[in-house]
Amino acid sequence: MNNLFVYCEIEDGIVADVSLELLTKGRSLANQLGCQLEAVVIGTNLKDVEKQVLPYGVDRVHIFDGENLYPYTSAPHSAILINLFKEEKPQIALMGATVIGRDLGPRVSSALTSGLTADCTELEIGSHEDKKLGKTYDNLLLQIRPAFGGNIVATIVNPEHRPQMATVREGVMKKEILDLNYKGEVINHDPKAYTDSLDYLVKVIERHVEKSKNNLKGSPIVVAGGYGVGSKENFALIYKLADVLHAEVGASRAAVDAGFIEHDRQIGQTGLTVRPKLYIAFGISGQIQHIAGMQDSSIIISVNTDPDAPINKIADYVITGSIEEVVPKMIKYYKQHSK
């Protein structure tokens, strides 16, 4: 009772990276709280799925293996979580800020009237003082996220309601196996006892999933462009540089919104989080949502015509100049010196 729960997402029998990242974070938060870490896996043909999650330090894994639970649909998955949470009364429940997590989380929180914070970039344990009530709450989940278009960072707490729920994007937390032989309890539940036949009315009749077309997450060098790149044509320059450096191309939301580049290359709070050895930002002003997705890069170079662009503050190298003048020089000198 009162433990920390992580909902594990499944694609083709494989637990999603974002869920394993949350198990890793969940383990460390559970240690701080002195509680257990529990995982929930819902799907079809889940034989041996516990082997994928237990090594992350999971004390109990709840498995719901039944027909029509894969692919994911909203109602049966939320009914299972709602009913399980009513029994187990978790203090914290985490899930990925994926299409599935963002479909499921609010439904569960609405039924349990618990608070839910979307797209957190940091999770911590801490206390909160309600000055009006003169009351202090200890060991709360501090849910930290950029808000209001990224102009501020807010820390959200749920003092009175349980579970404290939060979603986190893939790549924000780090995934780390604790112990390959970690011993946890495996509990096989009967999904029928947790769902109603009316929960299965929505049917998936066609499904088409492609592996990501780019390797942004794993690339050691990322060359990214922002609104300041100015046009789709100028993005061709960025691709050219990326090609020469064997890098992947990323972008800020503003560049995606302007139609310069496709959405699956967006880096930031509502896109991908990357941690490359080298991050070169062209014409990116540096809104906090973007920074949230690349600040852990080892070396950051900012190329901007505005010497006061906010991103320059976190950059190791700042080049004041335009993309048209800087990119060709970079390519020229790389080719000249790399041999």
């Binding site: 807010a154 959200i156 700042v318 080049i319």
Partner: peptide, 22 residues
Amino acid sequence: PTKVKAVRNIVFQAKESKTLNG
């Protein structure tokens, strides 16, 4: 159920950066 505990303006930890021109 959710309360805003704190709000802070964005202040980046300034790194020691090298400034170059193009």
